[in-house]
Amino acid sequence: MDSIVIWTIVILAGLGLVLALMLFFIAKKFKVEEDPRIELVEKTLPGANCGGCGYAGCHAFADTAVKAADLSAHFCPVGGNDVMKQVAAILGIEMVEKAPQVAVVRCNGTCAVRPKINVYDGAASCRVKAALYSGDTGCAFGCLGCGDCVAVCEFGALSMNPETGLPVVDDAKCVACGKCVAACPKKLIELRAKGPRGMREFVSCRNTDKGPAAKKACGNACIGCGICVKTCTHEAITLENNLAYIDPAKCKLCRECEAMCPTGAIHGVNFPKPLDREGIKGRVAARKKEVSNE
């Protein structure tokens, strides 16, 4: 009986030893020489493997970053400038700081202002719906509301607001990886500079129909009237195809365009105070008077 136990132990231990030695030698012989900095860089990265940088995951990012001459083609949107500084330090090369970005939904066609004109009864997918027709509202440009963007977001930053029927971006969770931008068949989502303390001003509409048609389809549509362009003193707004666009680089967040917009297509978010529409209108009117008097 005892001998059985002893033999068992001896054989198992021997087997273990032999296998360990084999593994050791195989590991030595077939070792793949890899730049040790790849591992260092990869450890610094958030490890979300979201692909937001344009590479197939964090390892591919690290691998290409180590080989790259500069970091102009490498930016981890999840880690942001902090992580990129560390990566640059490891690699000993310069990095370009990027202004933090956030996803912005450019449709404000809520259920209340954009009436449904038919009932969609297909698969709950914006992609399927967009391939079928212009949508269940009069606006052929607006949000289809099936939540493809919500489905692709790996950070839980997007959710559908059942009241408006539109997706809502949670600034704190959004890492600007750009997946939702690609998922939206109507190209409604834009990555914009987050702005100082998150304050930003944008045209929340993509409708390029002529004014009356746009207005008929949606109460919040940009009708291409151009008032914002005339109001803006910073030349930040351009009007093309009946649709205004605010350049975040030039916008000074004065909110004049927002106050003057006749439809509510222009949107300001994260401002500490509510919009003083009448005050601004008065100010703009006074300025115009001055200009015309001169």
Partner: peptide, 8 residues
């Protein structure tokens, strides 16, 4: 009247 629209 809102009619139903769906793929075939």
């Amino acid at each position: 009247m809102a009619y139903i629209v769906s793929p075939n």
